[in-house]
Simulated scan of single mutants.
Amino acid sequence: MTVSIGADTHDQSFSAVIHGRRSVRAYDPNFKISREEMKALLGEAILAPSWGNLQPWRFLVIDDEKLKLKLLPIANNQQQVADASAVIAVLANLEYYKQAKTIYGRAFEAGFMPEDRAKLFVERITAKHPAIPSEMRTKIVSTDAGLVSMALMLAARARGLDTVPMGGYDVDNFKETFGISDRYLPIILIAIGKAVKQGHPTVRLSVDEVTSFNQMTNE
């Protein structure tokens, strides 16, 4: 059964969303998210910020039952891979700078910046970033992919959906099985669907334990 989440579950306060999010590992295997709903969800997630607004993220949505079962052993047999409505692989585009002309061209066309400024940004990015050390480019895209991953999970919770991020999987096997080129860096897998068992509550260090002002004072 393919289900579209109604608007009544998409009107929550941010506080309710962030306090209500749990890492869910038990999903209803009969619950299916429609492609329309999935695209709407991703449309909200991609509002996340990124370096220079270059949006290096890419998503591989795996919702075919046979392919989820193929992914299952690659993801260390975590059952949520098979039972969730879909698994979203968040990838980072290591050649993100090649998008500069498209993105800044559209920014100019939308009236968000003058044409000469847009061209200047494109020239600087395309001249500088191909020569940046790979470690720095990896850090840039990994940071941005982390931001979009969190945005995705919060957008899902606002729609009444549940998620769990998964970092434990065979990256090389995953790339080979799903035809992912070296241009893309796999960041994380996110299972998404409807919980049959809620994620358990967790504790957090206090704000005072993790925060300093102006100079680091905590150990």
Rank of each mutant, 00 (worst) to 15 (best):
P114N: 13
R117T: 15
K119T: 11
K128F: 12
I132G: 03
D116H: 15
E95F: 05
V90L: 02
H129F: 08
A107P: 04
F121G: 00
S85H: 06
E115C: 13
A92W: 00
E109S: 12
R124W: 01
F108A: 12
V81F: 06
M113L: 14
A100I: 03
I125C: 03
N93C: 02
D83P: 08
V90E: 00
M113G: 07
M113C: 09
P130W: 05
N93S: 03
L94S: 09
E109Q: 14
V90W: 00
D83A: 10
A127R: 13
V122I: 15
Y96A: 02
V87A: 10
R106K: 15
I88C: 02
R124S: 07
F121P: 01
L91Q: 00
K98P: 00
E95R: 08
D83G: 06
E109V: 11
E95N: 10
N93D: 12
K98L: 09
E123H: 11
F112G: 05
Y96T: 01
A92I: 01
L91W: 00
A118P: 13
I132W: 04
F108K: 12
P130T: 05
A127C: 08
I125H: 03
H129I: 00
R117W: 14
A86L: 05
V81N: 03
V122T: 14
A110S: 14
P114Y: 12
Q99H: 13
T126G: 05
R124V: 07
G111E: 07
V90P: 01
A100D: 03
P130S: 09
E115M: 13
G111T: 10
A131Q: 12
R117P: 05
I103E: 01
L91C: 03
P130Q: 07
L94I: 06
R124L: 10
L94W: 02
